[in-house]
Simulated assay, not measured.
Amino acid sequence: MTLQYNGRLKVKGVKATSEAAPAAAKEPATVTTAPTGAAVVGVGKTTALVSGGVADGGTLMYAVTTTNTKPASTDGFSDAVPTAETITASGTVYVWYYVKADDGTHSDSEIAATAIEVPVADIVWDASNVKELDVFGNHEPCTIDGVTLSGNAEEVYARWSGYGNPEKDGISFETMESGGFTFKAPNSKKFTKIEMTLTGPAGWDYASLGTGWLYSDDPMTEIFKVTWKGSAASTVDLLKDAGNFNGERVKSIVFYLSDAE
Protein backbone atom coordinates (compact mmCIF):
# COMPACT_ATOMS: atom_id res chain seq x y z
CA MET A 1 0.00 0.00 0.00
CA THR A 2 1.37 3.54 -0.90
CA LEU A 3 1.08 6.38 1.59
CA GLN A 4 -0.09 9.63 0.07
CA TYR A 5 -0.54 13.12 1.48
CA ASN A 6 -2.80 15.27 -0.67
CA GLY A 7 -1.80 13.26 -3.73
CA ARG A 8 1.95 13.74 -3.20
CA LEU A 9 4.52 11.12 -2.41
CA LYS A 10 6.66 12.06 0.55
CA VAL A 11 10.27 11.11 0.00
CA LYS A 12 12.71 11.39 2.87
CA GLY A 13 16.45 12.19 2.64
CA VAL A 14 16.43 14.49 -0.42
CA LYS A 15 17.80 18.05 0.17
CA ALA A 16 18.10 20.80 -2.44
CA THR A 17 21.53 22.51 -2.49
CA SER A 18 22.99 25.55 -4.32
CA GLU A 19 26.72 26.57 -4.39
CA ALA A 20 28.00 29.96 -5.73
CA ALA A 21 30.65 29.85 -8.43
CA PRO A 22 34.12 30.88 -7.21
CA ALA A 23 35.03 34.55 -7.87
CA ALA A 24 37.30 35.10 -10.83
CA ALA A 25 40.87 36.10 -9.91
CA LYS A 26 41.62 39.77 -10.45
CA GLU A 27 44.33 40.79 -12.85
CA PRO A 28 47.05 42.87 -11.15
CA ALA A 29 47.40 46.49 -12.16
CA THR A 30 50.62 47.12 -14.09
CA VAL A 31 53.22 49.79 -14.75
CA THR A 32 53.24 50.28 -18.52
CA THR A 33 55.92 52.98 -18.43
CA ALA A 34 58.25 53.23 -15.47
CA PRO A 35 58.86 56.71 -14.04
CA THR A 36 62.16 58.38 -14.94
CA GLY A 37 64.34 60.01 -12.29
CA ALA A 38 65.44 63.63 -12.54
CA ALA A 39 69.08 64.21 -13.47
CA VAL A 40 69.58 66.16 -10.25
CA VAL A 41 67.44 68.30 -7.95
CA GLY A 42 68.26 70.97 -5.41
CA VAL A 43 67.72 70.60 -1.68
CA GLY A 44 64.36 72.04 -0.65
CA LYS A 45 63.19 72.78 -4.20
CA THR A 46 59.74 71.93 -5.52
CA THR A 47 61.36 70.11 -8.44
CA ALA A 48 59.81 66.69 -9.12
CA LEU A 49 62.08 63.74 -8.36
CA VAL A 50 60.51 61.58 -11.08
CA SER A 51 58.28 62.01 -14.12
CA GLY A 52 56.67 60.15 -16.99
CA GLY A 53 55.22 57.12 -15.18
CA VAL A 54 52.15 55.46 -16.73
CA ALA A 55 49.93 52.83 -15.07
CA ASP A 56 47.26 50.47 -16.40
CA GLY A 57 44.44 49.46 -14.08
CA GLY A 58 45.21 51.87 -11.30
CA THR A 59 47.19 54.84 -10.00
CA LEU A 60 50.93 55.12 -9.46
CA MET A 61 51.86 55.57 -5.81
CA TYR A 62 55.24 56.80 -4.55
CA ALA A 63 57.43 56.75 -1.47
CA VAL A 64 60.90 58.23 -0.91
CA THR A 65 63.66 56.86 1.29
CA THR A 66 67.18 58.05 2.02
CA THR A 67 68.56 54.51 2.10
CA ASN A 68 68.28 51.87 -0.60
CA THR A 69 65.93 49.69 1.44
CA LYS A 70 62.66 48.55 -0.09
CA PRO A 71 59.60 49.43 2.06
CA ALA A 72 58.04 46.41 3.74
CA SER A 73 54.50 47.59 2.96
CA THR A 74 52.62 50.25 1.00
CA ASP A 75 51.91 52.28 4.13
CA GLY A 76 53.01 55.87 3.59
CA PHE A 77 52.86 55.77 -0.21
CA SER A 78 51.12 58.69 -1.94
CA ASP A 79 49.80 59.43 -5.41
CA ALA A 80 51.48 62.86 -5.29
CA VAL A 81 54.63 62.95 -7.42
CA PRO A 82 57.44 63.44 -4.88
CA THR A 83 59.57 66.58 -4.90
CA ALA A 84 62.72 67.73 -3.10
CA GLU A 85 60.78 70.23 -1.00
CA THR A 86 61.14 68.26 2.24
CA ILE A 87 64.70 67.07 1.58
CA THR A 88 67.14 68.86 3.86
CA ALA A 89 70.52 67.38 2.94
CA SER A 90 72.38 66.57 -0.25
CA GLY A 91 73.02 62.98 -1.29
CA THR A 92 71.00 60.30 -3.08
CA VAL A 93 67.32 59.59 -2.47
CA TYR A 94 65.41 56.49 -3.56
CA VAL A 95 61.94 56.65 -5.08
CA TRP A 96 59.81 53.50 -4.79
CA TYR A 97 56.50 52.99 -6.59
CA TYR A 98 53.62 50.59 -7.19
CA VAL A 99 50.17 50.72 -8.80
CA LYS A 100 47.15 50.98 -6.50
CA ALA A 101 44.26 49.14 -8.16
CA ASP A 102 41.25 50.95 -9.57
CA ASP A 103 37.54 50.32 -8.93
CA GLY A 104 37.78 46.64 -8.08
CA THR A 105 38.54 45.01 -11.41
CA HIS A 106 42.27 44.80 -10.61
CA SER A 107 44.50 44.04 -7.67
CA ASP A 108 47.42 46.16 -6.48
CA SER A 109 50.77 45.58 -8.12
CA GLU A 110 53.88 44.72 -6.17
CA ILE A 111 56.24 47.48 -5.07
CA ALA A 112 58.95 47.89 -7.70
CA ALA A 113 61.91 45.71 -6.89
CA THR A 114 64.41 48.45 -7.66
CA ALA A 115 64.18 52.08 -6.62
CA ILE A 116 64.81 55.07 -8.87
CA GLU A 117 67.96 56.78 -7.61
CA VAL A 118 67.94 60.59 -7.78
CA PRO A 119 70.92 62.76 -6.80
CA VAL A 120 70.13 65.76 -4.61
CA ALA A 121 72.56 68.67 -4.50
CA ASP A 122 72.80 71.62 -2.15
CA ILE A 123 72.38 74.14 -4.99
CA VAL A 124 71.48 73.64 -8.66
CA TRP A 125 71.74 76.21 -11.44
CA ASP A 126 69.64 75.29 -14.47
CA ALA A 127 66.83 76.61 -16.67
CA SER A 128 64.60 77.14 -13.64
CA ASN A 129 66.70 79.88 -12.04
CA VAL A 130 69.56 81.20 -14.20
CA LYS A 131 67.88 82.73 -17.23
CA GLU A 132 69.07 86.17 -16.16
CA LEU A 133 72.68 85.14 -15.53
CA ASP A 134 75.12 87.67 -17.00
CA VAL A 135 78.81 88.03 -16.12
CA PHE A 136 80.75 90.68 -18.03
CA GLY A 137 84.49 90.99 -17.51
CA ASN A 138 85.90 91.38 -14.03
CA HIS A 139 83.41 94.02 -12.86
CA GLU A 140 79.94 92.41 -13.10
CA PRO A 141 79.64 89.16 -11.09
CA CYS A 142 76.37 87.29 -10.67
CA THR A 143 75.02 85.65 -7.50
CA ILE A 144 72.30 82.98 -7.56
CA ASP A 145 71.19 81.07 -4.44
CA GLY A 146 74.26 82.35 -2.60
CA VAL A 147 76.85 81.14 -5.13
CA THR A 148 78.73 83.87 -7.00
CA LEU A 149 80.27 83.55 -10.45
CA SER A 150 82.73 86.24 -11.47
CA GLY A 151 85.20 86.86 -14.28
CA ASN A 152 88.90 87.46 -13.71
CA ALA A 153 89.71 89.55 -16.78
CA GLU A 154 88.09 92.26 -18.86
CA GLU A 155 87.28 90.10 -21.88
CA VAL A 156 85.59 87.07 -20.28
CA TYR A 157 81.85 86.48 -20.35
CA ALA A 158 79.23 84.09 -19.02
CA ARG A 159 75.61 84.50 -20.04
CA TRP A 160 72.43 82.46 -20.32
CA SER A 161 71.61 81.51 -23.90
CA GLY A 162 67.99 80.44 -24.22
CA TYR A 163 66.19 79.40 -27.38
CA GLY A 164 63.32 77.44 -25.88
CA ASN A 165 65.05 74.10 -26.38
CA PRO A 166 65.93 72.37 -23.09
CA GLU A 167 68.57 70.28 -24.86
CA LYS A 168 70.39 73.34 -26.19
CA ASP A 169 69.71 76.13 -23.67
CA GLY A 170 72.35 76.87 -21.09
CA ILE A 171 75.20 79.08 -19.92
CA SER A 172 77.72 80.18 -22.54
CA PHE A 173 81.27 80.59 -21.23
CA GLU A 174 83.54 82.74 -23.41
CA THR A 175 87.10 83.95 -22.87
CA MET A 176 88.84 86.32 -25.24
CA GLU A 177 91.87 86.60 -22.94
CA SER A 178 93.42 84.63 -20.09
CA GLY A 179 91.88 84.99 -16.66
CA GLY A 180 88.97 82.62 -16.50
CA PHE A 181 86.23 82.43 -13.87
CA THR A 182 85.82 82.13 -10.12
CA PHE A 183 83.01 80.37 -8.25
CA LYS A 184 82.56 81.55 -4.66
CA ALA A 185 80.56 79.53 -2.13
CA PRO A 186 77.86 81.05 0.10
CA ASN A 187 78.96 82.59 3.39
CA SER A 188 80.21 80.05 5.97
CA LYS A 189 80.24 77.30 3.31
CA LYS A 190 82.84 75.68 1.10
CA PHE A 191 82.61 73.63 -2.06
CA THR A 192 83.30 69.90 -2.01
CA LYS A 193 82.21 69.25 -5.60
CA ILE A 194 81.00 71.23 -8.62
CA GLU A 195 79.57 69.37 -11.61
CA MET A 196 78.66 71.04 -14.89
CA THR A 197 76.59 69.14 -17.46
CA LEU A 198 77.17 70.29 -21.05
CA THR A 199 74.99 70.32 -24.15
CA GLY A 200 77.93 68.84 -26.08
CA PRO A 201 81.70 68.32 -25.95
CA ALA A 202 82.90 70.93 -28.42
CA GLY A 203 85.48 73.23 -26.86
CA TRP A 204 85.47 71.62 -23.44
CA ASP A 205 87.09 68.37 -24.60
CA TYR A 206 90.39 70.07 -25.44
CA ALA A 207 90.36 73.31 -23.39
CA SER A 208 92.79 74.14 -20.61
CA LEU A 209 90.21 73.86 -17.84
CA GLY A 210 92.32 74.78 -14.83
CA THR A 211 93.45 73.22 -11.56
CA GLY A 212 91.05 70.63 -10.17
CA TRP A 213 88.74 70.59 -13.20
CA LEU A 214 88.24 67.45 -15.27
CA TYR A 215 86.32 66.81 -18.51
CA SER A 216 84.50 63.47 -18.97
CA ASP A 217 81.96 61.97 -21.34
CA ASP A 218 79.91 58.83 -21.78
CA PRO A 219 79.55 57.95 -25.49
CA MET A 220 76.67 55.57 -24.77
CA THR A 221 74.48 58.15 -23.05
CA GLU A 222 76.02 61.24 -24.67
CA ILE A 223 76.39 62.88 -21.27
CA PHE A 224 79.23 65.41 -21.14
CA LYS A 225 80.49 66.84 -17.87
CA VAL A 226 83.14 69.08 -16.38
CA THR A 227 83.76 68.39 -12.68
CA TRP A 228 85.75 69.99 -9.88
CA LYS A 229 86.46 68.21 -6.60
CA GLY A 230 88.21 69.60 -3.57
CA SER A 231 87.53 71.58 -0.41
CA ALA A 232 87.57 75.35 -0.80
CA ALA A 233 85.42 78.43 -0.34
CA SER A 234 86.23 79.44 -3.92
CA THR A 235 87.70 77.96 -7.06
CA VAL A 236 89.51 80.42 -9.33
CA ASP A 237 90.94 78.36 -12.15
CA LEU A 238 88.08 77.53 -14.53
CA LEU A 239 89.35 78.31 -18.06
CA LYS A 240 92.13 80.43 -16.53
CA ASP A 241 94.55 79.82 -19.42
CA ALA A 242 91.97 79.47 -22.20
CA GLY A 243 92.72 82.68 -24.08
CA ASN A 244 90.20 82.13 -26.88
CA PHE A 245 87.39 79.83 -25.76
CA ASN A 246 83.72 79.51 -26.71
CA GLY A 247 82.52 76.01 -25.81
CA GLU A 248 79.18 74.29 -25.88
CA ARG A 249 76.61 75.63 -23.43
CA VAL A 250 76.31 74.36 -19.85
CA LYS A 251 72.82 72.96 -19.13
CA SER A 252 73.23 72.80 -15.37
CA ILE A 253 75.77 73.41 -12.62
CA VAL A 254 75.46 71.42 -9.41
CA PHE A 255 77.13 72.58 -6.21
CA TYR A 256 77.85 70.36 -3.22
CA LEU A 257 78.73 72.19 -0.02
CA SER A 258 79.94 71.66 3.51
CA ASP A 259 80.35 73.98 6.47
CA ALA A 260 83.50 76.09 6.43
CA GLU A 261 85.93 75.22 9.20
Rank of each mutant, 00 (worst) to 15 (best):
A153D: 04
D218P: 08
T36L: 11
F136P: 08
T143E: 07
V50G: 00
A242C: 03
E261H: 13
M176R: 13
V11T: 08
F224C: 13
T182G: 01
A185I: 03
I171F: 02
S150C: 13
S208Y: 09
I87A: 05
K225S: 10
T33S: 13
G42N: 02
V81F: 07
H139T: 15
W96N: 00
K100V: 08
E195P: 00
D217Y: 14
V41G: 01
W213T: 01
P201Y: 14
Y163I: 15
L149M: 05
V14N: 11
E27Y: 15
E27V: 15
A63N: 12
L257I: 03
P119R: 02
D169G: 05
A115Y: 01
A21R: 12
V135D: 02
S51R: 07
F173W: 09
P119W: 01
W204K: 06
K240Q: 08
S73P: 06
P35T: 07
A232P: 09
A16V: 15
P35S: 05
S109D: 06
K100P: 03
S107K: 15
P186T: 01
A113G: 07
T65H: 00
A84H: 04
G164R: 06
T92L: 05
D259F: 05
V93I: 04
E195N: 05
K70N: 02
A158M: 07
E174K: 15
V226P: 00
K70Q: 02
F255R: 00
T199W: 07
K190F: 01
D145F: 03
K12A: 13
A16S: 15
D79G: 09
E27M: 14
T143P: 01
V124C: 08
L238P: 00
A80D: 13
P141K: 05
E222C: 15
L9V: 14
V81Q: 06
N244W: 10
V124I: 10
P22C: 08
S188K: 12
K240S: 11
C142Y: 15
V64G: 00
T67P: 01
R159H: 15
G57I: 08
G180N: 07
G13V: 13
A63Q: 10
T83F: 10
S208L: 13
A80T: 15
A202N: 12
V99A: 06
T235W: 00
T32P: 00
F136Y: 14
G137C: 04
G180W: 03
L9G: 12
Y62H: 01
L60T: 07
D259P: 10
T32D: 07
F173E: 07
A29Q: 06
K184G: 03
N187H: 07
V147W: 03
D134E: 12
E110F: 06
N138M: 11
A89K: 13
V54L: 00
G146Y: 02
A185T: 00
